[in-house]
Design a protein around this nucleic acid. Structure first.
Length: 485
RNA sequence: GGCCCUAUCGUCUAGUGGCCUAGGACGCCGCCCUCUCAAGGCGGAAACACGGGUUCGAGUCCCGUUAGGGCUGCCA
């Protein structure tokens, strides 16, 4: 393979970064980086009405969050600025180049101003004509109409009866008849260039060697190949990855839950989990590995190993990967990832080390970072009546014969513990002693305590709970129950 | 409708003519562990869409059927 691999991700900023786009970007990134190539980001904002700066921001942020950083493209720090040898990387700012290529096509006779009305482009069967009735209009006629101020789109004069085919990197040979392509529009009547034209200009100018994109672009490919050839250029190699669908095999939509990656970020999905999960829809390394770092994926990625059938977005599997990645975070890393998901006062309550320790207690219990707050709150404030789970309180405290004794006898034992003795080693004999003397099971003993301390019957291990909370807090929370029962 | 693409457990996938009695993962079910909830360990159910070929031999190649999807814009 001669030369450097140059690939691009070319989103149009008309919405957020959705999962399909993120995966396409990821595949391009993995491929380029694994081959020592260049990953380019180009903003396809040719449609001025639909493109927004806000959307572009969201896409840039999304890619950066995922760790998919581009070598050439928009400057993430300065909107409108570009980084790389072929600026600008905003399509709307590349009009001079597009005009230049337009002139080449015009001079070579590959395009024509088409005066056809909508009616004239419609056949007797009511369907759109593929070839314009004006495709053989003379140059003089076009210039005359232009001079008269007539508004006309520019069309590509598509050759008839030509077979257009390419060796698709993921699908193998794909063939179209040029008769299916037709005289497509390059410039709108108002002079605005259209996607299929600018993409070719820019790919040539940016020296793109390989195009890996969604399957929805397959039918654009013959148009682009024809254009490359008309411009005297060898087309890049193309590859089309299948779409991501919902579990019901329908196109991904709001019904399937979040489609935008920022929604997953807000839910507390780790970017490394998201990337790992996304990479496995439509691609597999070939061995049984599933959990992989970005680095491992770069080494293994090859578009020829991509699947040809659409893959379903399985939320359960994303959840699984997120649990996996959360579990392997160090206490410090866990705290950092959690910062935006917890009340800031938690870190001041007893300091960051305390909070850090508390979080590790829940590390194997949560699937998403945003679940921490609802789980760990009682380590940062005493439960009040409204926090209590009525059923748990009834079962283990108010309607439990032995509750008062369980709480008071053990509390008495705890009370006797001196400074530095608030450890599992010192506490366990007290609990064990009571379990033995009372003949009650450990569950019968620990559950009332758990409810008294947290308001519910679910918490980390008994000793983790008691030791972490500390003597003062534990006794403060239990005393009201001893008095009340 | 036309054109193009696709088809292995519920889902993501391995599989490129004999290594397949079809492997892994998620999910699901059962058991173990156990102070709750989880986690963890062990085990289990679960697929080559259908019909024709080609071949000594087909999940793997060819054709058809069926079923999905994409495109069919002076959107990208």
């Amino acid at each position: 393979m001669a030369g450097t691999l140059r690939v691009r991700f070319a989103p149009s900023p008309t919405g957020y970064l959705h999962t399909g786009g993120a995966r396409t970007a990821l595949f391009n990134y993995l491929w380029a980086k694994g081959q020592g190539g260049v990953f380019i980001l180009r903003v396809e904002d040719t449609d001025e009405e639909r493109s927004t700066e806000e959307s572009m921001r969201a896409i840039l942020d999304g890619l950066q969050w995922l760790g998919i950083m581009w070598d050439e493209g928009p400057d993430p720090k300065q909107f409108g600025e570009s980084i790389g040898p072929f600026p600008p990387y905003y399509q709307s700012m590349r009009r001079p180049l597009h005009q230049e290529y337009m002139k080449k096509l015009w001079d070579a006779g590959h395009v024509f101003y088409c005066p056809a009305t909508a009616e004239e482009m419609t056949g007797p069967d009511g369907k759109k004509l593929t070839f314009s009735p004006y495709r053989d209009i003379t140059r003089e006629e076009q210039e005359k109409r232009l001079a008269a101020g007539e508004v006309m789109p520019v069309r590509f004069r598509c050759p008839r009866d030509v077979e257009v085919s390419w060796e698709d990197a993921v699908r193998g040979k794909v063939t179209f008849s040029s008769n299916e392509v037709g005289d497509f529009v390059l410039f709108k009547g108002n002079g605005q260039p259209l996607y299929n034209f600018v993409v070719v200009c820019d790919d040539i100018d940016m020296q793109i060697t390989n195009v890996l994109r969604g399957e929805d672009h397959i039918s654009n490919t013959p148009k682009q190949i024809l254009l490359h050839e008309a411009l005297g250029h060898t087309p890049p190699e193309f590859g089309h990855v299948p779409l991501i669908v919902g579990m019901d095999r329908q196109r991904l939509s709001k019904r399937h839950g979040a489609t935008a990656v920022d929604a997953y970020e807000e839910q507390g999905v780790l970017p490394e989990a998201m990337v790992n999960f996304l990479a496995l829809i439509g691609w597999a390394p070939g061995d049984d590995r599933e959990k992989m770092t970005l680095e491992e994926m770069k080494q293994a990625f090859d578009p020829h190993r991509c699947t040809k059938a659409a893959g379903a977005f399985n939320p359960d599997k994303l959840k699984f990967f997120n649990e996996l990645y959360i579990r392997e975070l160090s206490p410090d890393a866990l705290l950092e990832r959690l910062r935006r998901f917890i009340p800031p006062v938690w870190l001041e309550h007893r300091g960051e080390d305390y909070a850090k320790h508390v979080f590790t207690l829940f590390q194997e219990k949560i699937a998403y970072l945003n679940e921490m707050e609802a789980n760990a709150w009682y380590f940062f404030r005493d439960p009040v009546e409204a926090d209590n789970n009525e059923k748990s309180v009834a079962k283990f405290l108010t309607e439990n014969e032995s509750a008062k004794q369980v709480l008071s006898e053990i509390a008495a034992g705890m009370e006797a513990l001196g400074d530095g003795e608030w450890t599992e080693e010192k506490l366990a004999p007290i609990v064990d002693g009571f379990v033995e003397s009372s003949g009650l099971g450990r569950g019968k003993v620990m559950q009332p305590w758990r409810v008294a301390l947290t308001g519910d019957a679910i918490s980390p291990g008994f000793y983790d709970l008691v030791v972490t909370l500390g003597k003062e807090t534990v006794l403060r929370r239990v005393q009201p129950w001893i008095d009340r029962l």
